[in-house]
Design a protein around this nucleic acid. Structure first.
Lengths: 146, 146
DNA sequence: CTTTGTGCAAACGATTTGCAGGATG
DNA sequence: CATCCTGCAAATCGTTTGCACAAAG
């Protein structure tokens, strides 16, 4: 029993939700990858060998996992939601070429001073969203800024 | 002839695009408001008195305005794109209650050090996305963090 | 046996597209 | 008169929902 397993069992049960193979598969897949897949990517990935979950189930599983705080949505792209099993606060880097989204550790960006906000705005959370080009796309010549 | 007018005429013409009443209306509306409306909000707003532009035209106008760099998309919410006539770098505050998005001046957040990124990632731009509660929603009791 | 979950297919909402007619240069 | 733009309606894409059946407690 690894950490993932105990997490998901514990948290789902705490809310009276069942730990189904589908939910487990979604969570395990999300944990075992560094990127942030869309629902569709999860669907094809999970059913690659044996059909495990339908499209509708992927969505409801993702919703259940979000409700218990195991997964969160990442919105850095038009039209699609991406999902992230890393629920600790962190930042994101999005490659403009391949669209891949990479996590950036929280500590990397110091010095964001939320108290500098105008009075009246109560900040609860924040993240830095960086856009650029990653090394896999590096050799490309489409380099607008650098 | 104000700044907006000259901007839009100049930039559209530079790309061989025409300055139509519809495009002008979309841009003028976007400039004359501090929030970041959706395409649908723009549609109803612009046609409030006299029908000026159809839904499809709003979308193509927004695309044209984006192409010439007068407008940009803001993605801080699921399922809808919002639009912003402020193309200078700045940050965003999103109220979790009313969903409104407010601009935060670039200078407010100092100290984000992009060179702290792992080597291999070439940063081109970034923004800080803050979430919380604004003053209009303030009195509400749904206050998860504060 | 009561509750919760799955799968299918239909529904949905935001956005895009094909096409015919209109306006512009 | 050639090009670009608009408006309509149909198409598309991601996501959600209703419902019947299956599984778990």
């Amino acid at each position: 029993m690894n950490e993932q397993s105990s997490h998901i069992i514990e948290l789902l049960k705490a809310k009276g939700l069942r730990v189904t193979p589908q939910r487990f598969a979604v969570y395990a897949n999300l944990c075992g990858r560094g990127d942030h897949p869309t629902a569709e990517q999860l669907l094809t990935d999970i059913n690659q060998d044996v059909p495990i979950a339908s499209q509708a189930t992927i969505y409801t599983a993702l919703q259940a996992l979000q409700n218990v705080g195991l997964v969160r949505e990442v919105l850095l792209e038009e039209g699609v939601a991406r999902y992230d099993a890393n629920v600790h606060p962190h930042h994101h880097f999005r490659c403009r070429c391949c669209g891949e989204i990479e996590d950036i550790a929280w500590e990397v960006f110091q010095g964001v001073n939320l108290s500098a906000l105008r009075p009246g705005l109560k900040a609860e959370q924040y993240e830095v969203a960086v856009q650029g080009v990653c090394d896999r796309c590096e050799p490309a010549s489409i380099n607008a800024f650098a």
